[in-house]
């Protein structure tokens, strides 16, 4: 990944100069993670991101510090296993320690840090990813068991810079605050849409003996089925509203008043 070290173009310099004039020198001297940068620029030029949205501090942070991720394979791998699998529809082959979880492999080895580690013990849902179409916890999945499987993470949901309708609905309904549980919530919600289509039941389903297809989920059903994803900030009502809107495609108005 030598492209990381590619010098900034004049245009890029200008952008940084605008966003953070006082940091420009440092960015130039430390090199830039061009991949991230180009991605964000692409979004900006496509009108997906207003220029002010590019958190300059974060662009800076990425560009100045990120080195060659490909070199991250740790020096000490015990019981090494070669795993080939698809991540976000791209084939990956990694040599891993047998102990490596899918979550750590995504985050530390493939630099896909969107999947979060909130507990590492299957208690929070922040690490939820979609494996072969089903939502699972990547913290309790050994990467070694993923041979030949297809993993979709939060980074793989938007297609050609177009947000997945679930992502867009989360944005619209303020379905997050700190954003840390968000990738897990969204992956979980995306998989939930499929489960509902298949007519899967939940603990609050009125009569599980009745098999149904394409269930339109009530608030209660959404809440029960999303209960494996904990949000400490308390964005639950907004998340439920977002999922409802994504499922029905209809505008969901939230009941609230503003007298000020």
């Amino acid at each position: 990944m030598n492209e990381n070290k590619t010098k900034l173009t004049e245009e890029e310099k200008k952008l940084f100069g605008d966003l953070m004039p006082e940091e420009l020198d440092e960015i130039i001297s430390s090199g830039l993670n061009r991949r991230h940068f180009m991605k964000l620029m692409g979004l900006a030029s496509a009108g997906l991101l207003a220029s002010h949205l590019i958190g300059a501090e974060q662009l800076f942070a990425r560009s100045a510090e990120i080195g060659d991720i490909a070199d991250l394979a740790p020096a000490a791998i015990e019981n090494g296993i070669n795993v080939s699998f698809k991540v976000n529809n791209t084939a990956k082959k990694v040599l891993i320690d047998s102990r490596a979880t899918l979550l750590d492999t995504l985050r530390e080895r493939l630099d896909l840090t969107g999947s979060k580690k909130g507990c590492d013990h299957g208690q929070c849902g922040a690490c939820t990813v979609i494996v072969d179409g089903k939502r699972v916890l990547s913290c309790l999945t050994l990467a070694a068991t993923c041979e030949g499987k297809s993993v979709i993470t939060i980074e793989g949901l938007a297609k050609d810079n177009e947000l997945n309708p679930m992502q867009a609905a989360f944005l619209k309904h303020d379905g997050f605050q700190c954003g840390f549980c968000t990738p897990g919530q969204i992956c979980s919600a995306v998989a939930l849409m499929k489960e509902a289509k298949e007519g899967q039941a939940s603990f609050v389903t009125a009569d599980v003996r009745q098999n149904q297809q394409s269930v339109i989920l009530s608030d209660e059903e959404i809440a029960e089925r999303m209960s494996g994803n904990i949000c400490r900030c308390g964005a639950y009502p907004n998340i439920v509203a977002a999922i409802k809107e994504a499922q029905t495609g209809k505008n969901v108005e939230q009941t609230w008043l503003f007298a000020g």
Partner: peptide, 9 residues
């Protein structure tokens, strides 16, 4: 029991 994710696993 558990959550949808765990029941899937």
């Amino acid at each position: 029991g558990a959550s949808a994710q765990i029941r899937n696993m």
